[in-house]
Nucleic acid binder design. Sequence first.
DNA 1: CCTCCATGTTCTATGATGCT
DNA 2: AGCATCATAGAACATGGAGG
Length: 301
Amino acid sequence: MEAYQLILQHYSDVRVQREIAEYSAGRWIALHCEQTDEKGRKILVRYWRGRRPLSLEEPADLPRLLEAYRRLKPRSIHATANLYGKLESVEDVAFIGNIAACTPTWDVDNRLEDWEATREASKQIVQFLSENGVSESVYVKFSGRGAHVQVHPYAFSARLRSKINPLDLAYALVEYVRGKLQPRFVEIALKFKAEGLRVDNEMDFQRLFVCPLSVHRELDTVAVCLNPEELDDFTPEEARLGRVTHHWEGWRNYREGEADELAVKAYSLVGGYPGTYGRPRRRKHPPLEKQIWRFVGRREP
DNA sequence: CCTCCATGTTCTATGATGCT
DNA sequence: AGCATCATAGAACATGGAGG
C-alpha cells in the first residue's frame, strides 16, 4: 500500500475522528501537509481560504478537511494550547483577549529511541503536579517522538480565568514547575545517556501541539495519550501508524479549579507570559505625515 | 503557510552646536 | 534668542531563519 494511503486509512477510523474533533473543539487547528513549499518545508495550513482560522468541531469535519486539502496531502493535525471564545476571523486569534482557556503543556523533547528518559522526565512533572494538588486533570501524550505533559484547561477555574489571562496562568505554571525540576531533568539525561532530552516551555499566544491520535509530522507514529499513573505500561511500539494498540481517553478528565492554587503561586513568582505580541503595539510618536495633517487641522484624505 | 524572534537597517525626535 | 544643521539614541521597520 502506498504510504499516504495508510494515513488516510488511519483518519478514516471513527474513533480517531471523534478524539480529534473533541480535542479540537474551541481550538485553532492546523494541518501539516506532506506537500512542501519552494524551500522544501512542509506546508502548514492555518486559515480556511486565507481568512478564517481553521477549526474542527465535529468528527465529520476531519474527512471534510482532508478532502478539501487533498492535493496538499495533510499528514498531522495540530491544535492550539488555547481555547478561544470566538474563532471566526483573523482578529479573533490576533489578541490575547479572546483566549478563554489555555492548556499548560510541558514539551519533553527527545529522540524516539530514548523513550525511557522521556518517560522519566514526564513522570517527574506528573509527580510534582500531584504533590501540589493537581492530579485529576493531567495526562501525558506521546507526541510520536517525545512527549507532552498537559493539564486540562478547566483545571483553572472560570473565576480565576476571568481575573488572570489563561495564557499567563499556563505560562507561569509551566515555567515554575520546569524551574523546580530542571536538576532532575539533567540527572535523567545523564543516567539514560539521553543528551537530546529537553523540557521546554513553549507556551505562547498561538502555540500548536499535536492532537491526540494525529499522525506525527515526520515519523510513522501516532500521538497517543497515556494514563499518567501507568506510564510504564507503554512503549512507542504500541503507537506505530497502522498498529495503534494503546490510547487513553482520560485526557478529557478534569477537576475544576484544582490547579488554581499552584497557578497563582507560580504566577506571583514568575509572572505572566513575557511576549508583547498579541498585545497591541503603540507607536511612541505618530508618523510625521500624520502629524502634519493634524497640524494642518484636518484628517488625512 | 504563518508567525515568532534575532538581527540589521532606516527613521524620527531631540539635544548639542554653531552661526547671525 | 532664533534658526539651521549635525549627532545620536531609541523606535520602527525590513529581513532571514526556525519551527509547528
